[in-house]
Design a binder for these strands. Structure first.
Lengths: 214, 214
DNA sequence: TTGCATTAACGAAAAATATCTTTATTGCAT
DNA sequence: ATGCAATAAAGATATTTTTCGTTAATGCAA
């Protein structure tokens, strides 16, 4: 949970900050495409409807320095955030469950662009096993053991039906997966040292509906 | 931003609570399937690796009452949370951008199950226009104006390529959309009264990578 | 060069969220 | 019945996160 900052000292990055940084990054990339070289915290703040000092606080975690009266250098922001979030270091992942969502993730170039490389897919449906999507081969679950020896990946993406999530997670953990990215709404039990990150669109849906009806 | 609770008084539900409730719900549904009738806050807490009192606080927002020494009634939990999150009232949505992700969302039964009905898709690709996915017809963007008159929807789901997000949002807002569910990493500018909820898997990815490397 | 306006940075305060403590209830074993 | 243990609920405290206020830097105009 500790982040090594540019002073060599240890400090924690707040999760909310971590979650906002990719949004900033996308915005900065768009600025760059439009030929804009500098941006101020207040511009960012108004774009994201937030407080300007929060923007500077967030950015300061990455070690980037803004210049008074000038703002931040867009190119530098992009490089710094990518580096800070480690979107530039390739990280391999296995994907379990090649249904609609799994397929979409495999097809989605965004993940690769941000460092996550899905190197193999796994499913139980004989109709998909041995097929390839975007040059990524789909294997039977049984093949996982062998494949996890040949190719190494630290991340398992779970996009199976809900009921299969725990079994797949157990399998992945048994074979040394370090982090599980769980796209099912199912809660998953893992040993202490394994990281689980849940992505639930239902949470977002709940927030939308709540805002809509109040 | 106000939530009408069972006392008839007004109170705000913390967003973190709102975001956790769907996870609980999924867990309670699984318990029900396994024939489990009651559950205690400490059980929930250990499942989700959190503090038990936080669970009780979260659940108390929904108005549900637990019984000392017994816990909560699973059936009642499910009904109450569904009602509280308004997952039982149908809400129509238009979906813009029928690429991999858009297609996955249309195919995904989960959304419908939780109240969100995608009633039409829109795209610019002549190859998809007039096609149907799961009985949901895909229209050209130009058709939106007419369709939004015939069918009403308060929510616009944006799954277009990044660069198109703002234009589509503008179009949706012009035709009276109340909330935008933005799946692109692009930040979107809308008038004050329009709700925007961003779903960014990059935020989750950032959190995973950060945990992995620390 | 001087002063003004803009802006990042830093520390303090406030607000929001989570945890801890206490209390009261009640099922269950004795 | 009685006491014990488990549990929800409510309030107090602690922690985290955001916002506010101040300071210092500096580009730019006069």
């Amino acid at each position: 949970m500790k982040e090594q900052n540019n002073n060599g000292t240890s400090s924690q990055v707040p999760t909310p900050t971590l979650r906002r940084l990719p949004g900033y990054l996308s915005y900065f990339k768009a600025l760059k495409i439009n030929g804009i070289k500098r941006v101020s915290s207040s511009q960012v703040a108004s774009t994201f409807k937030m407080d300007a000092t929060l923007v500077t606080k967030d950015l300061s975690y990455t070690g980037i320095k803004g210049r008074t009266k000038v703002g931040y250098d867009v190119d530098q922001l992009i490089d710094t955030i990518i580096d800070f979030l480690e979107f530039d270091t390739k990280e391999n992942a296995f994907l379990f469950g090649v249904g609609n969502l799994g397929r979409a993730l495999i097809n989605y170039d965004g993940l690769r662009q941000y460092g996550l490389e899905i190197i193999a897919g796994f499913d139980v449906d004989p109709g998909i096993i041995n097929a390839s999507i975007k040059n990524i081969k789909i294997h039977s679950l049984d093949a996982f053991r062998d494949l996890s020896r040949k190719h190494s990946a630290r991340i398992a993406i779970i996009t199976t039906p809900d009921h299969a999530a725990q079994d797949v997670a157990d399998l992945a953990v048994a074979w040394g997966i370090k982090a599980i990215w769980n796209f099912t709404p199912q809660s998953i039990k893992v040993p202490e040292h394994v990281i689980v990150e849940n992505t639930s669109i239902y949470s977002d849906l709940a927030v939308i509906l709540n805002k809509l009806n109040n």
